[in-house]
Amino acid sequence: MELNEAQAYVQASLHNLFEAFQRVPGSAVLIRYIQSSYQNDPIRSAIELVLVIFFLREDEIDELVKDWEPEPLVADQTSFEENEAEKIPVVVGPTGPKVRLGNGRTVTNLASYNFYNFNASESIKEKAIQTLRTYGVGPCGPPQFYGTQDVHMQTEADIASFLGTQSAIVYAHAFSTITSVIPCFCKRGDVIVADKMVNYSIRKGLEASRSSIRWYNHNDMADLERIMKKVAEEQAKKKILTRRFVVTEGLFEMLGDCSDLPKLVSSLFPPVPA
């Protein structure tokens, strides 16, 4: 029977083909993927199959383009956000221990970081005006392109000597300082161990660094030590040595307490034997 022979032949060759396919590395993954996606959404995998067999024709793409409706650029403000926005005080005039608000009331100001009220210092204002009359307002360029002026260098030197360091850099924006400094030192593959309660800009910096980040409980030196040991062991096992950083805050913005710096330094970084 020719028909039977043909059928057996086709079956045998299909079987061979399937076996050959299974021997290809990764084929199992592919089959599993197709199976699972079929289970989740049979129609979608059917469409995908169609996509594979027939490439999308131009007019089909046109239709898809026509059908696609993007979400609005921004979601509506939540009522919480609206409330918050309404509650933001508008300060009229200078800021200080007492400020006048947009609604005409004068209130005690406990919301500004104006620790010494230098903002009201006439001698500092005078100095600022003197600088304005010598330099203008903007330096008109980034530091690398002629934006560095002698005032910048002088300020940096003053800050360095105030803090007792060799040198310092001044940034234009306090909020972004730490965010841009962390990725300068911490690169992909490095390990950062950070306090769980560090502020938002530090978190953004950690995120931008692409390092692997571990968290220790807030101000818990024992926990920090435990994690550091674990990192060291892991690295010893893998025989790699990466840079390891501990990131914490001096005075925590969110909680108002201090890091235990003496303990941090003495326990984790014992003096290097000469």
Partner: peptide, 20 residues
């Protein structure tokens, strides 16, 4: 402006840094 307002608003916009 410096004579009137001083040098900084010492705060973020959502706290007390929104001025007229």
């Amino acid at each position: 402006c410096v004579r009137k307002y001083g040098l900084s608003f010492c705060s973020s916009r959502t706290d007390a840094g929104t001025s007229d």
